[in-house]
Design a protein around this nucleic acid. Structure first.
Lengths: 170, 170
DNA sequence: CACAATGGTTCGGTGAACGAACCAAGGTGT
DNA sequence: ACACCTTGGTTCGTTCACCGAACCATTGTG
């Protein structure tokens, strides 16, 4: 009963959510999916995560309806509508991390693709006041961003330039 | 180097944040701190967490400046300003959990202590439009709330009625 | 056709989480 | 003042999650 992902005694939505995304690596996989990572090998290369763990996590997230897997032997993984709902979680975590562990300011900036205004964690544009869908959000390197070094993987390199969220990397 | 809480290869604020709060039980401890839980035994009773794990987590969160510990052999634990910054994370997680794993609607409602308006995950009051500090937020049972059963611990019982966030339970 | 890329799966080792037991100090009641 | 209870831990042996290395089958490319 006391399975490592579960919080069986908790009658609480935070616990229910953590049962899905609270395991080690899960939220980083979800984050990468928002950034447009789609392929097993790209998740693996970017996250430097053991392949067995990645496979298990992807399976589980697909099973919970957070991600969906394309067909074939070379499937792509994409966030479902349910998975898209995790953006405020990812974003608020990033903001907190930036504030307290980002000495040079935010690593990523998020702007509205249409008007260029800053998009807040729950998706409002500071310039035009509209709710901005995740897919209309452009992510750019911020002042705290560390450029990929020599020999960095292709995903890190691709994510080092402005890029729409959810846009597949390839 | 590949310590279980760390994500050493990640140049990312989400990863930095998860290094602090991403371990099993940490975010639930933080959640409970928002609810006003202050004592070791109360965290232990409410979370049903192994005591060694709780002690280690509290130590770590204190070390990271998320919580502070009072003096004496019976210390109270309270969120620091840094810890308070995690409220949007906790709240957005709860919202996502409510949406997808709460068949009867939200388990908790959050209202502005002054005017009674609904408070959104980043702290805006829907009635008066003001930013609402966490401590001015009243948490009440919502439609999806499950009342504590027979023999439930005192913390669950205390949290079953409307209560200001951060207000110590005792 | 040969080789590389891809998406896994298996395996043994290490460490985290677990429940049970123990312990020292402080608090409370008689 | 003393005995007992409560509190906040700490220790310990067991189980399992995560890890890195190795292996493998299928597909894609030159």
């Amino acid at each position: 009963m006391a399975l490592p992902r579960e919080y069986t005694q908790q009658s609480c939505s935070v616990a229910r959510a953590l049962e899905v995304v609270g395991e080690r690596w899960s939220l980083l996989i979800v984050r990468d999916a928002f950034f447009g990572v789609r392929r097993f090998s790209d998740f693996s290369a970017h996250l430097r995560i053991p392949r067995a763990v990645l496979a298990e996590r992807l399976d589980f997230l697909v099973g919970e309806g957070v991600l969906e897997r394309g067909t074939g032997t070379r499937p792509v993984y994409a966030l479902t509508a349910k998975g898209l709902g995790l953006w405020p979680v990812v974003r608020t975590l990033a903001e907190w991390g930036d504030t307290h562990y980002g000495p040079r300011g935010p690593r990523r900036l998020f702007t509205h693709a249409g008007c260029g205004g800053a998009v807040d964690p729950v998706g409002s544009c500071s310039a035009c006041g509209q709710g901005v869908p995740v897919g209309d959000t452009v992510m750019s390197p911020g002042p705290g961003f560390e450029a990929p070094g020599e020999g960095a993987n292709a995903v890190s390199v691709a994510l080092a330039s402005p890029h729409r969220l959810l846009q597949p990397l390839r």
